[in-house]
């Protein structure tokens, strides 16, 4: 028996995994999208009350104000080490770090490498927007060759500053890393794929399989000096060729969680 009478139904609203706080992120900043996807996944998995997040230093430094769950704020780059300590003494909790490119790929390069190498059973959300946002637009380890920043005013000169680091490619080489993928937040289709990857990464942790990381190509309209929409186009035109999307490591141990 079915009831075909039409009634108004709630299709989408702010997830419970987010607090009611208004974020400090600039208009159109994709940090907000990443936060939302994380909160949606945590809600859908029903793990909000057993999840502990670790915030970085950088634009997401106040993430603990925005996520409605237990949170710690790490020193710059040390979130994977802090997550290691937390997870080792609380193995039944879901522990994730949320890190930008300066935090993860520059000052915290050692900590992320070894957390991945140990197969630490944590999930890392890596926001790559090719620039330092919080300090006002300086060169990041992921800044593209030729990209202008406030510390590479003439564009990143690889003779002087070297080349960008591709963290998915690097970490996927490590035996301890079981799920390492790169996604992008530059349009709706890719945002949907990003959410699936985040879900998969959390499922990997729930199954105790080891280190999982989702890199999200993200925008920084303010420090890139463009509108929010132009910034999304910039991701597509400039970042995708340098940081190809894809599954860099999907361990055979990972069984599909059954879609989302």
């Amino acid at each position: 028996m079915t009831n075909k009478e039409l009634v108004e139904s709630l299709i989408y609203t702010k997830p419970e995994g987010l607090t009611s706080a208004v974020t400090h992120y600039c208009p159109g900043c994709t940090h907000g999208i990443a936060h939302r996807l994380l909160a949606e996944v945590i809600d859908e998995m029903g793990v909000r009350e057993e999840t502990i997040g670790i915030a970085p230093v950088g634009c997401a430094v106040f993430a603990y104000d925005y996520f409605n769950m237990d949170f710690a704020e790490a020193a710059h780059g040390r979130a994977p080490a802090m997550a290691t300590g937390l997870k080792r003494v609380s193995p039944d909790k879901v522990v994730f770090t949320y890190q930008g490119d300066g935090d993860l790929a520059s000052i915290g390069a050692g900590e992320i490498l070894h957390a991945a190498g140990r197969g630490e059973n944590i999930t890392v959300i890596f926001i790559n927007n090719a620039i330092y946002g919080m300090t006002g637009g300086q060169m990041a380890p992921t800044t593209l060759p030729g990209q202008r920043t406030t510390s590479t005013p003439l564009g990143r000169d690889v003779e002087m500053h070297g080349f960008p680091l591709r963290m998915c490619e690097i970490l996927s080489q490590l035996d301890g890393a079981v799920y390492v993928v790169r996604r992008s937040l530059h349009n709706v289709a890719n945002i949907r794929k990003a959410k699936k990857a985040i879900r998969q990464a959390f499922e990997v942790q729930r199954q105790g399989l080891g280190f999982s990381m989702v890199e999200l190509l993200s925008s920084c309209p303010t420090n890139w000096g463009m509108s929010a929409a132009e910034a999304l186009n910039w991701i597509e035109e400039h970042m995708l060729p340098a940081y190809p999307l894809g599954d860099y490591k999907v361990s055979p141990a990972i069984s599909k969680h059954g879609g989302n």
Binding site: A74, M82, G110
Partner: peptide, 14 residues
Amino acid sequence: EVAAINMVYGAASA
């Protein structure tokens, strides 16, 4: 040692 003390920080937070 940098990582060690931050692991300590994480475990202490628990």
